[in-house]
Design a protein around this nucleic acid. Structure first.
Length: 566
RNA sequence: CGGGGUGUAGCUCAGCCUGGCUAGAGCGCUUGCUUUGGGAGCAAGAAGUCGUAGGUUCGAAUCCUAUCACCCCGACCA
């Protein structure tokens, strides 16, 4: 493509409302333009990258036996009522005003509908069905450029199996395909165990990249590569000590002591001797939760432990249920009947200090085995930076991550609610066992740029670069330089190398060099007067900035090696 | 949905607090000449309903009210 004929709207100035590097560079290099909040146009160079990513995805999906569909984005709302997801998506789903239609945020329903109409027998299974298609989600707050948009492209696939083992196999195939896809795109990623959450099902993993712009928080071990969303992460942090002797409990006057830190300071003890009390309401019933010292309660873990949603109690509820305000609540002398649970770290501990359920008083020497009826101990705490890894004891890092993909073992949630059944080899009707697997295309591109850029611009990998090489005609006024540039453009193009050819006559060399660095093709071929006099052409590797020259007649061979070599 | 911020030329922004002549700058754009290895020089030129609507005033980009859009923080995020 000739630069002079193409549409490459590069901009020098950083757009004012782009904060993260990928957003700034995608606009500056002319990949995208915003149309509304969370809505972007992909311009030719951005779409070229998108198509390359799609190609990699298609190859890897086809390699595991996937079949590509193109499903409608417009769906009858009735379909979504069958799975009860009109309610569960709520305001996140776009509804069409003048028809009973919705814009699909994902496609489990459509897939299940096709399956129930056509899958009859276990002999029709397994199937892997995928598509690359636009999704619509009414995000309350779009942000970070294309990372969180209201309309975006997703590769979504669905596995249909006759057995749990079949699902496990389809799931593993996807996990392997996803690793290949991200690796081929040039992304540094990691895999985390995730909570299967409201999707239901038995297993789920997220593919993530580490990034300050991320919306998830992850505990990572750099040594053994343990990785988990903090919603589910655990560490090998030491439990509370149990001393040999358990002294009798004793009430102590602690005026105006509200926090664990104040309490530990006042009594000159470590925070690990303090049992922090939290009151939650789950299913309308009060729950008293004990955490060691300043450990933070993890509400996702609490929800899992209780098997129900729970909320923190209001201040008025605290005093009516316990007899004290926050800061003086404890296990002994409660007014109401509580379910009492505690973090595993406190299991069987004694010599603990906790509130007396009387303002300005605490109780010491509490023995959880002797003095408190603990319903159960659960892992309820939020892992913190530097705690030892559960597997290898090396310190954990807590980082922000961007979710690039998510794989789910759905099970029979949709096949049961939507009646997608098959006859097994006993002639018995069974619900199809499903899996669901998603990859965000825009996120791959934005995350790639987050990981591969410098002060001058983007640094594409060969695999997804919009063009293989950037050919620069430095001196557009020199007939010999222009003639040689034109000749090389023709020769390289004939060799099936995709060339972005900067043939502009009206800009200075510096302008072309800066555009080339901004656009970020892996290899630059620079045709200039000085080198051409010596029958030489200059090459520049974008990643390293390394420059070298080759003889004119060896140029095409050298470029071919670079582009097609490993 | 709560909190904060911003809307002035294609882009980045100044002017607003303290109302007052014909609304500015840099970059970009058009034309001509010069220039040509890291975002060129000179000259001439085009380009803005100051987000929108209403109000106050002799007079509003500027003050007031409403509204819309966008950005940031939070809530939310199968």
């Amino acid at each position: 493509m000739r630069f002079s004929k193409g549409f490459f709207p590069t901009v020098k100035e950083v757009p004012s409302d782009a904060i993260i590097p990928s957003h700034q560079l995608m606009i500056r290099a002319g990949l995208i333009r915003p149309l509304g909040a969370g809505i972007f146009s992909f311009l030719p160079i951005g779409y070229a990258v998108m198509k390359n990513v799609m190609q990699i995805i298609r190859e890897e999906m086809d390699a595991i036996g996937g079949q590509e569909f193109c499903l409608p984005a417009l769906n009858p709302v009735e379909l979504w009522e069958e799975s009860d997801r009109v309610r569960s998506f709520g305001d996140t789903m776009f509804h069409v005003k003048n028809r009973a239609l919705v814009l699909a945020p994902t496609h489990e329903e459509v897939i299940t509908s096709i399956a129930r109409n056509h899958i009859r027998s276990y002999k029709d299974l397994p199937q892997i069905w995928y598509q690359i298609q636009t999704k619509f989600r009414n995000e309350p707050r779009p942000k970070s450029g294309v990372l969180r948009g209201r309309q975006f492209n997703m590769k979504d696939s669905y596995s249909l199996d006759a057995s749990q083992e079949g699902l496990d196999n389809s799931y593993d195939l996807h996990a392997e395909a996803y690793k290949k896809i991200y690796s081929r795109c040039g992304l540094h990623f990691f895999i985390v165990g995730a909570s299967s959450g409201a999707m239901g099902g038995s297993g789920s993993q997220e593919f993530m990249v580490e990034s300050e712009a991320g919306e998830d928080t992850v505990a990572l071990c750099d040594s053994c590569h343990y990785a988990a969303n903090v919603e589910v992460a655990s560490s090998g942090v030491a439990p509370a000590i149990r001393t040999k002797e358990s002294h009798a409990i004793e009430e102590i006057f602690t005026p105006n002591i509200k926090t664990i830190d104040q309490l530990a300071e006042f009594l000159k003890v470590g925070t690990d001797r303090c049992a922090k009390s939290l009151v939650y309401i789950g299913d309308g019933k009060p729950v008293l939760i004990f955490m060691m010292g300043n450990d933070q309660l993890n509400e996702t873990k609490l929800r899992t432990a209780l098997g129900t949603d729970a909320r923190a109690a209001e201040p008025e509820e605290l005093s009516s249920l316990t007899g004290a305000d926050a800061g003086s609540i404890g296990p002994i002398g409660l007014k109401a009947n509580f379910t009492i649970i505690a973090d595993k770290r406190l299991e069987g501990a004694n010599g603990l200090i906790s509130g007396a359920n009387k303002n300005d008083y605490h109780i010491r020497n509490i023995d959880f085995n002797r003095d408190v009826k603990i319903g159960s101990y659960y892992d309820l705490r939020t892992v913190e930076q530097g705690e030892p890894c559960l597997k290898c004891s090396k310190p954990l890092r807590i980082v922000k991550g961007i979710e690039l993909g998510h794989i789910f073992k759905l099970g029979t949630k949709y096949s049961v609610s939507m009646k997608a059944n098959f006859l097994d080899d006993q002639g018995k009707e069974q619900p199809i066992i499903m899996g669901s697997y998603g990859i965000g295309l825009e996120r791959i591109i934005a995350c790639f740029i987050e990981q591969h850029h410098d002060a001058s611009g983007i640094i594409w990998s060969k695999s997804i670069a919009p063009y293989d090489i950037h050919l620069i005609c430095v001196n557009a006024n020199s007939e010999t330089v222009v003639a040689k540039s034109e000749e090389l453009y023709r020769m390289l193009t004939e060799t099936h190398i995709s060339v972005l050819y900067d043939d502009r006559t009206n800009v200075t060399p510096g302008f072309k060099f800066n555009d080339a660095d901004l656009l970020g093709m892996p290899l630059q071929v620079i045709v200039g007067e000085k080198n051409l006099k010596n029958n030489q052409i200059e090459l520049k590797e974008r990643l390293t900035g390394k420059r070298w020259t080759v003889a004119v007649d060896q140029l095409v061979g050298e470029v071919k090696n670079r582009v097609f070599g490993s």
